[in-house]
Amino acid sequence: MELEQMRTLWREADLKIEQHKILTNNSIEEIAQRRFSKTLSFISLSEGIGLFCTLLTALFILWNLDKLDTWYLTMSGILAVLVLIILPFLSLKSIKNLKRIDIAGTTFKKSLRDYALGKKQFLAIIKLGSYFAILIFIISILLFEKIINDRDLIKEINLVVYWFIVPIGIIFQILFSRLILKKYHEVIDVAESILKELNE
């Protein structure tokens, strides 16, 4: 089928489409209004809960920083607080950048580029987060044991923690990170191919 033939076929189908109106005044307003409220509630629920939990954890560690009485526990506490605050904010910022794409005011080419670059940036933060998750998990065990039970797991060997909780936790984190990274590579490949095609 040549392009001209396709164009003719398209024009014929167009006439049929034009005869069937889907939208009415009411349906347009209903879609717009309901969609608006659904979009807002979805964003506040998923992204808000994540940020709230990490900030609460960071505040808890910060509030109990004086209980971390050795140099390595203090350093671990500060590192955990920084990671728990910075990573979610970077992630939210990149999501915000993705959503900021001006659908009505920009060209197809520019929004494709912005979207592909934004997606790459967002996924780079997710990738970084998945690496930090293992570190934060181990640090958290040390910090919470010290803050809640006043026990330093570096000095006092706890067999349940060392042989059971930590290994299971690490295996879980590695499996989870692998899952995230698999998805990461799939999406990045799509974004990369769009950017490559835009430059052709």
Binding site: I22, S27, E30, I31, R34, R35, K38, T39, F42, S46, L98, I101, I103, A104, T106, T107, F108, S111, L112, Y115, K119, V190
Partner: peptide, 28 residues
């Protein structure tokens, strides 16, 4: 066309986050 095409690009970001449909779906 511009708005529709630009919206379609961002559609694949919602593959994981499908927004609940409004009830007029059956009609649509």
């Amino acid at each position: 066309y511009r708005v529709a095409l630009n919206t379609s690009i961002s559609q694949f970001k919602r593959e994981q986050k499908r927004i609940e449909q409004v009830p007029i779906d059956t009609f649509l």
